[in-house]
Every structure is written in C-alpha cells, then in structure tokens.
C-alpha cells in the first residue's frame, strides 16, 4: 500500500500505528478512568463512523478505537473537540494552550496535542469501594491539569488504598490513598477483631494487651489501609479527617528491566502530592536537557540518580509534618540478562 504518513506526528496526536499501514487506533484520555456514561455514545459513534466498529479498554484506561483509516483522522479530530473541551477543560481545568506549562497555541479541532504525559489511571476508590481511603478520580482530575499537555512522559497510577488494585507499584509515579488512624480506647471492647483483620489482611501490627484491655500498635509499620476501622464494631478505630497519600516511584514493566517501584513519600498530604508533581516537568527537562525523549520516569530517575531526583522534585515543596521521605532507594530489578548493566562505556546513557 502506497502511503506517506508521518507516524511519529500521529503518535503525538494519540493515534497509534497498526499492523495495517494507514490504519490507526485512537486513544481518548479518561483521567482517573471514571467518566459520565453519556460519553460512551461518543465512543460508539467514533468507532462506528470512523473506525472498524470495535473498541478496546486501553490498558491505561483510555477509550481505544481501532481501525481508523488515516484519511478519517481530521474528521475524528473535529468530532473530538467537544469531548476534549468537556473532559479536559471543564472537568479537569486543563489549559489546552500550554505544553509542559509553557504557552503553546492549540487548534481545538486538531485532537490531542501530546501523548507524553499518559492518561492517569485509577481504581474506583472510595467513590464505591469499601476499602478505599480516597476519591481517586477527583485526585486524577486535579493532577491532569498539572501534567497535561506535555511531551514529557509520565505514567501515574492511583489506588484508593494499599491493596493497590491499580498497581501504583508498576508505574513512574504511583499514588496510594492511606489513612492515619485514631484509637478511642473508651469505645474499645477488646474483641480483637482489628487484630485479626490486620493480621489477615495487612501488616500484623496490632496486638491486644490483656492487662490493659487495650489495643497496642506498632505504628511505624502500619500501612494505613483502614482494615482495622472496617472490622471494628464500636468505631473505636476511626480514620483521621484529612486523607494522606503514599507515593511509589520508579516502577515499570518492559522488555529490559521491569521492577516494582519503591516508596518515595509516606503520609503526604494532597498539597504535597500536587506540588511535587508540579516539579515533574522541571525534573524531566533537567535530565533530558530540555529535549523530551520517549523515556519514562523510572528511567529518568535512574539517569539522574535518586538523590538528584529528590532534590529537584521536592524543590520548594513544603512537606507536612507527618510526611516521610525515602533517604535513599535501592532498586530491585528483574534482569532478564544477567549483568545487564555491564556494557561498553559508549553505550552508557
């Protein structure tokens, strides 16, 4: 098939090349993976009018529409105007006329301007889930306006609780909703349900002091999941009113060195999370010398070294008093090939 198509440009426009030359898959952003069901008809319309009639749940919670012929892309982009306006501008307060925080004109009928900062994924969180500590999609919508549009890559996954259904451990910047607990001894009947719940479902940090008829807690190792609160029949355990967050960085999948992320911040407030993310562009620009490459956050942290990452990403961020920060991080990668990192010096990045 004789086609002359700028594939790389289309990728930035969120159209992914397919096996069949000239056919593309559109990826529509759904920040936090949660949206009014009325938009499904838009998805259906695009798929049936411009694509091959099919739809895929994107692994990053995008609406993926397959089989869109190259010729249809301008029409699809025009049609997308309303969706982008409603979701990005209205719902998430994104300034579409910027790229990485810098002013940049965006033509509203030209589709998505960047693919770098990926769709923020989230579990359903406490909008629905009985385990959730936070409203995940509301957080995703707040973050969307900080990271998008941008050519700098970042994958953010949000989980409502340490159960981490949404794999915050497997992305660049994973956020987990946690709660700090309050114990009301005057309500405790020493039934031991919280002890059992923590042992079975969490970290085994609770024990019953029979002499005092009270629960004792090894607070340093509590993961803030809230299983104890759910188990307690008397509300002797409650969550503090302010939600807190744990940040896991540098996780990734991939062909070379997949690894689970490691804890960077614990017990951070929402402000700390948002302000930290505001430094993401700056950090990426520093590592890549202001030239965005197709390189994810974990790799950037590797290049800069964790300490440099920490310095830039926390620059100007006022940490809440409870917030803990990793002094150092020691990664634990899967090396598909042993001594993967030992190579000719000219191949070092």
């Amino acid at each position: 098939m004789n086609k002359d198509i700028d594939i790389k440009k289309l990728r930035l426009n969120c159209y992914r090349q397919s096996k069949e030359v000239g056919k593309f898959m559109l990826q529509m952003r759904v920040p936090g993976g949660f949206i009014d069901a009325k938009y499904l008809s838009i998805v259906q319309h695009i798929a049936q009018t411009y694509g091959d009639g099919n739809f895929h749940f994107g692994t990053r919670q995008t609406f993926n529409i397959t089989g869109i012929p190259y010729e249809n892309i301008p029409e699809v982009n025009k049609y997308l105007e309303q969706y982008i306006e409603e979701v990005e501008t209205c719902l998430c307060d994104v300034n579409m006329n910027t790229i990485a925080g810098e002013e940049a004109y965006w033509e509203p009928q030209s589709g998505y301007p960047t693919i770098g900062a990926r769709n923020i994924t989230a579990c359903i969180g406490n909008y629905h889930c009985i385990c959730g500590n936070i409203n995940t999609f509301e957080l995703a919508r707040k973050i969307e306006s900080i990271i998008f549009p941008s050519h700098y890559h970042i994958k953010i996954n949000i989980s409502g609780c340490p159960n981490d259904c949404n794999k915050a451990h497997m992305c660049d910047f994973g956020i987990i909703g946690v709660a700090r607990m309050e114990y009301h001894p005057e309500r405790c009947i020493a039934c031991g349900a919280c002890v059992k719940a923590c042992e079975k479902g969490a970290t085994r940090v609770l024990s019953l002091n029979e002499n005092l008829g009270r629960i004792e807690k090894d607070a340093c190792c509590c993961v803030g999941c809230g299983e104890c609160v759910r188990a307690c029949p008397t509300s002797a355990w409650t969550r503090q009113e302010t939600p807190f967050y744990r940040v896991i960085i540098g996780g990734r999948t991939g062909r070379q060195t997949p690894r689970a992320g490691k804890m960077f911040l614990n017990w951070a407030t929402e402000d700390v999370i948002l302000n930290t993310l505001k430094n993401w562009q700056k950090f990426s620009a520093y590592v890549m010398d202001n030239k965005p490459e197709y390189l994810h956050g974990g790799h950037l942290i590797d290049r800069a070294g964790y300490k440099k990452f920490k310095e830039i990403i926390l620059d100007g961020v006022k940490l809440n008093p409870e917030c803990l920060v990793a002094e150092n991080i020691f990664w634990d990668e899967t090396e598909y090939r042993s001594n993967f990192n030992v190579k000719p010096i000219n191949l070092h990045k």
């Binding site: 809230g226 409650t238 969550r239 939600p243």
Partner: peptide, 15 residues
Amino acid sequence: KFPKQGRYSDTDIIK
C-alpha cells in the same frame, strides 16, 4: 455527627 469517622472513608458517624 463526627465527620468522616464512619466505617468507610468519607462517611460520618453519629454517636
């Protein structure tokens, strides 16, 4: 009402 002290997060308890 004790805000956000319910069994599930962001739910209240009245005691």
